[in-house]
C-alpha cells in the first residue's frame, strides 16, 4: 500500500470514528487528540485498525503517545517504509 492510500485510510477512520465531516480534518498536520477528534479510549481501536492496515502488530511499549499527534506522525511511526506518493 502506498503512502497516499495509507493517509486516506487513516483519515477516513478518524473522521468516521469521530462522527465528523471531512472538513474537520483539513490537513495531515492537524492535531487529532488535542483537537478532540479522538480520545484516549479510541486509541486501542485505532491501533487495531493500524495493525490491520500495515499487516503487522504494533509494539505498544516501543511507541510514545506523541505518535498520535497527527497523520504525519502516524505515518512516520507506523509506516516508515511506505512508498512516498505526493501526500495530501
Amino acid at each position: 500500500m502506498d503512502e497516499k492510500a495509507i493517509r486516506e485510510g487513516l483519515r477516513g477512520w478518524i473522521i468516521d470514528r469521530a462522527g465528523a465531516t471531512p472538513d474537520a480534518l483539513p490537513s495531515d498536520q492537524q492535531a487529532i487528540l488535542d483537537d478532540g477528534l479522538l480520545s484516549s479510549l479510541d486509541i486501542v481501536e485505532f491501533i487495531l485498525f493500524i495493525e490491520d492496515l500495515r499487516e503487522e502488530e504494533v509494539d505498544i511499549e516501543a511507541i510514545e503517545p506523541e505518535v498520535f499527534n497527527n497523520i504525519d506522525s502516524l505515518v512516520e511511526a507506523f509506516f516508515p517504509d511506505a512508498k512516498s506518493v505526493s501526500p495530501a
Partner: peptide
C-alpha cells in the same frame, strides 16, 4: 497477549 492501551493525561 499484549495490551494495546496508552494512557494519555487528562
Amino acid at each position: 497477549y499484549p495490551e494495546k492501551k496508552i494512557v494519555l493525561p487528562r
